[in-house]
Design a protein around this nucleic acid. Structure first.
Lengths: 204, 204
DNA sequence: GGAGAAAAATGAACCGGTTCTAAATATGAG
DNA sequence: CTCATATTTAGAACCGGTTCATTTTTCTCC
């Protein structure tokens, strides 16, 4: 009952994703042909299409793994945030940015964003958007947590503020991946400046 | 020196863009073949590629026209804004949203966003990003104007706040075009809620 | 352990965007 | 008007993602 069939399936999944991730990072999404991924994973082209609807799905699967790590890292920040509203927000945002670039290049992010925008109703588009929503909810959660810690005024609309902070971060990250020359430091500096006024206005 | 050649060139440009816009709206970007656009514009496929680098450029050219109108409409709002910070911001945002959907379908927006994300350094990507920046600057301009009208505290960082409001709007618009079922009314309601807390906090 | 059914793998063929070429045509200058 | 040049044209060919009919592998049941 071990299931040789299931075993092979898992093996092939693994090999395909790893081959694709390595090639995408090394050569760029467009440059890599399905043929090359198939060869690297020692599988036929048709087999890849058995596992992934299309080339984009394959990339988004890789991106999803990274975003799950970002979510986990965010959760750790919320569990024990800095005892200062502005610093807490800055730390969460910095965590998002830094963990988002461990395995993925800017180019991979661009492609993944483009694909999920193009096909929001495909399984991979839906999955990606749910991750975005999860990140937004997590930002809201931080604001709520800061309210319970008396670091943010209890009267403020945590949902509205959290969404806004996350949406701004997400758009700035989009700008960041669109500009190959923009550094993480520049991005974080701009984000801190943007968040400062808002967070100071709602801090307790 | 009138330039019959230039005349014809302009004519062809016009016919190609109009044919493409009509077909994209009616049948969807992917469905429309270059062959069909060429036929509708009464030119050959090769000619289209003389004028536009690729199918995406053609779409982004259409989107650019729309965004220029959005910018113009925004300028009119700033020239004579409502005398109330929250209402002024809401009006600018509503203007953006409503003018953005006159000629373009959600699907066309999705495709254009995807293309410009994918190729941020191509001429069409650069043009699109400049328009985004122009919209962001316009939002900052409104905040500054509201400061001169004593509707917003002079101490607040207009640049930071304006950018944040625009980035949030832009991301919400992205979410909106990704969800075919989401109505303009719903989008505007959510945007108003998000902006309310922020604007109230910085209002004079 | 073998036969038949189900699942999965294969790779050649397809499709449409894009490029290229040679020929036709239009334009502007002299 | 005529020629040199620029532009358009048609369509063949290319390219790589995707599809599909076929073959191979795995599972199940006797």
């Amino acid at each position: 009952m071990a299931g040789l069939r299931a075993k092979h399936k898992a093996d092939r999944h693994q090999r395909i994703v790893e081959a694709a991730a390595r090639l995408f990072r090394a050569q760029g999404y467009d440059t890599v042909k399905m043929e090359a991924i198939a060869a690297a994973a020692e599988v036929s082209i048709g087999t890849i299409y058995n596992y992934y609807r299309n080339k984009g799905d394959l990339l988004v699967a890789i991106v999803s793994m990274e975003v799950h790590e970002v979510l986990a890292a965010g959760e750790r920040v919320i569990a024990d945030p800095p005892r200062h509203a502005e610093k807490a927000v800055a730390k969460l945002i910095a965590t998002y940015i830094e963990h988002g670039l461990v395995y993925l290049s800017k180019e991979m992010w661009r492609q993944a964003m483009a694909i999920t925008t193009q096909q929001p109703d495909s399984p991979c588009g839906v999955a990606y958007n749910e991750l975005d929503e999860a990140l937004a909810r997590q930002t809201v959660k931080l604001i709520r947590k800061l309210q319970t810690l008396s670091l943010v005024q209890v009267g403020v609309d945590a949902q509205a503020i959290g969404e806004m902070i996350f949406n701004n971060t997400n758009m700035m990250f989009t700008i960041f991946v669109k500009h190959e020359a923009m550094s993480v430091a520049t991005l974080l500096t701009r984000l801190r400046r943007q968040n400062r006024t808002l967070v100071q206005a709602i801090a307790a």
